[in-house]
């Protein structure tokens, strides 16, 4: 057989920054502000973001927590104790826009799967230096 092929898998080009938030868990408390959030602001939030799965589950005797679960398997939790409804909405927006990755500084402006266009530097190509 003169030519064989190597099997690979086509890689997703979606960078980590574009990962959706599939699920978001909100735990209701006895707080009035949070029950107002659950009644009035959460339906609007869910309607605006249909791609996010929202589930509400009781957490008796403990502080209310918003959790975002991301496709990369990570989870982010924010305690919303003593927060107003608008503040909780802001926290939910924060979880929504986050990628799920750990917060770290990007030092390189461009990430790419492609190998460098210029390739490895070669002394024989390009401009020849004359001493």
């Amino acid at each position: 057989m003169p030519l064989q092929a190597l099997r690979t898998v086509a890689k997703s080009q979606q960078s980590r920054n574009e990962v959706h938030t599939p699920a978001s868990t909100i735990s209701p408390p006895s707080n009035n502000a949070l029950s107002a959030f659950l009644k009035h602001q959460l339906p609007a939030f869910a309607a605006q973001n249909p791609s996010i799965e929202i589930s509400v589950s009781p957490r008796p005797g403990r502080h209310p927590v918003i959790k975002g679960q991301y496709i990369n398997g990570r989870e982010k939790a924010i305690c919303v104790r003593n927060m107003e409804a608008t503040e909780v909405t802001k926290k939910a927006e924060l979880l929504k826009t986050a990628s799920g990755e750990k917060l770290r500084r990007d030092r390189k402006p461009v990430k790419s799967f492609n190998e460098s266009v210029r390739g490895v530097w070669s002394p024989f190509h390009g401009r020849q230096y004359k001493i």
Binding site: A5, L6, R7
Partner: peptide, 12 residues
């Protein structure tokens, strides 16, 4: 999805 076709050749 990204697939580099030139890496899939295995010449003998």
């Amino acid at each position: 999805r990204q697939l580099d076709l030139h890496t899939m050749f295995n010449f003998t």
